[in-house]
Amino acid sequence: MLPIILMTMRCFLRDRILFALLGAAGLLLLLIPAMSSFSMRQVQELSITLSLSANSFLLLILATLLGSASVWGDIERRYTAGLLGLPLSRRSYLLGKFTGIAVFLLACCAILAVAGLAVIAIAKSQYPAASDPQWWVILLASAMIGLKYVLLAAFAMFFSTLSTSFFLPIFGTLGVYFAGTASQEVFEYLNSDIAENLSPLVKSCAEAFYYILPNFSAFDLKVQAVYGLPLDAMSLLGTLLYFLAYLAVLLTLSVWLFERRDL
């Protein structure tokens, strides 16, 4: 499996589009100190918000593109014919490919996180806030962003193993992203008094979706990072377990589907 991981990553490193994307993100980060100074009372907070949001946004694009293109692209360009003629199981191929994508995403996330810290330090020096930024919480929030997009990439790959075109992987993944980000919000709305008059059928449908879709709100530590709020270790651990369990189910399903597919 190691060779396929390395090959996947090598091909990413030689792809100019990805570097263009990373470059654009770098430029965006450079603008943050200037943009943060528009804030009256929370320059430092705004710089943290913007750098985490920029990180998240770039990873969304990367996870969607890389995850969607993974299997579907290899089939489309007929790389699979040669690859699967090797003594390589489809499971190793898929998992190796996914590991390559995941490592690449996490590496990008780490680079952007470190660049973000530098940018925050610059913004902070312009106008120090009452309290220093909680560097570790910011790093933790970045790590959670990384995990979230690894999960999203797994979704993209899942769609990619099903599909013969790029429509389903790309739009399916974006759909999952938006639904997964909003699901907690909708769930809380449904359980509030405002939604009392809603029909029970709609409610239970929405609830089913809430449990099936990935809950990306759990990975969102932005408020804690930006405003230095305390973190709950148990809920972090819970999120980590949720991530692992969800990922395992998704990958197992993907392997199961891919092994049954005619190429």
Binding site: T49, S53, S56, F178, T181, A182, V186, F216, K222, V223
Partner: peptide
């Protein structure tokens, strides 16, 4: 709902 995680920004 639309802004999702970017609602702080």
């Amino acid at each position: 709902l639309l802004a999702g995680e970017h609602r702080l920004a």
